[in-house]
Amino acid sequence: MRILLVAPVFSPNNNVAAQRMNFLFDTMSVEHEVEVLVLSDKTSFDGRVKSISKRLFSTSYRAWINRKKIYSLLRGLLPEYDLVVVSLPDYGLLEVVKFCSELDVKCIADLRDQPNLSAVQNIGSSKIINTLVRIKNVLQVKYVYQRLQYADYITVVGSISTSMVETSCCKPVVNVNNGYLLADKKFVSERLALKSSSEKNSLIVGWVGSIYRFRDNANLRQVVDELDALASTQEVILRHWGNCYPELEAYILQCPNLTYENTSNFERESFLTELNVCDCFLLSCSDSLIWEPTTSVFDYLLFNKPVIYSGLHNNEAYNILFNSGVEVVGVNDLVSTASSEVRGIVFDGNTNLYSREYAYTNFKRIVDEVSCGL
């Protein structure tokens, strides 16, 4: 069967969305002929990894305005495939889902990076701006669900998202966790030491993920303040992988005692090795979005270490922590690693449910169903 993956990013990019698409590409290529269409600076349909101009899809509005041009580019390409998988962290790519329906091509709308929350992120202090942002958000949500009606299947992360999308779209919805790789689990359990002696007197808090306004709340700032207070009695390092919007970063940097380190090293083995040095982790989620997916939680599951949680306690990320048995703690529960023994790395069978390989078995059921129908 011929399959086309449509994604904003693909190898060699090292961000989270690219890693998931790379895994999907490699896994499906074992049984099927798989090619990729990626957003890029130019349009080229040559080779196995094709590209289309990202300017056409920069926003849902722009994609809608450019829909005739996009259709003219894709109407000869999409029918060459038996199945198209569209990864949707961007609203604009939803136009491809609609075109697949019009061209009678089976399509999976992959919502595991649910459409970006630009409307929520832009909420500020102005009542007029907030009103306009909320109107925009309502219109975008309506647009998303209208376009999802054209998909044959939809994949999401978690039971909350599954229920919400099923109710809104009346389409087959499959829960497919983003997950970690079993190779990561093997690397962590077999090759990593517990902690480097050079940093034994420091309390290192690992923080993974880009932090936008919608993930910044009073609870998160309280955690930062508590870490700063703890740092007055011992060295505390908040080590962050990802972006942090300027206002929050400025708030963290003004803390007199807390050491803040930001890194962009996501080379997988180096990243896991640095995470392993951490004594605990910080997971920052929105205090209003119950369905919010965050891939950070799957990286944290690889280590038997406490997690400081900021956000709703009835959302998808918290449910994953709770169901996997990870200990959720407050800053006041933390003690100096100089006077306590760092835990070993312990896995139980339940954590395997959050591996990317296990998640793919659910995805594969859809692919096999399409293949059998040909």
Rank of each mutant, 00 (worst) to 15 (best):
N332H: 12
E316S: 12
Y354K: 04
D110S: 05
L5K: 07
D348R: 10
V157M: 13
S189G: 01
Y354M: 08
Y180W: 10
D110I: 00
A229M: 09
R134Y: 12
S118Q: 07
S324I: 02
P246V: 06
L321Y: 10
T27E: 14
A250I: 03
H313V: 11
Q254K: 15
V156D: 10
F23T: 01
I204Q: 13
V367E: 09
S264G: 08
E199K: 13
N332Y: 04
V335E: 11
S29L: 00
L181V: 00
V133D: 06
S371L: 03
N14M: 06
V97W: 07
R268E: 14
S101H: 13
A317E: 06
Q114S: 09
L39W: 04
E341Q: 09
N332P: 00
A183L: 09
F347K: 09
I211V: 15
D287T: 04
P246M: 08
S339V: 04
K68M: 06
A17T: 11
D279Q: 03
E249D: 14
C285Y: 01
Y358W: 08
K54C: 01
A193T: 14
L283N: 11
N304V: 01
I204C: 07
S168H: 13
V208R: 05
Y61V: 14
V120H: 11
N14G: 01
R365D: 11
P172C: 06
L258W: 02
G47I: 02
I129F: 05
N352F: 10
C170K: 15
V328R: 04
I290Y: 06
C280D: 07
M1W: 04
K142N: 13
L192A: 08
L301M: 11
R239F: 13
T43K: 10
F266K: 08
L39S: 07
N323W: 01
K185S: 14
V38I: 07
L132Y: 13
R20L: 12
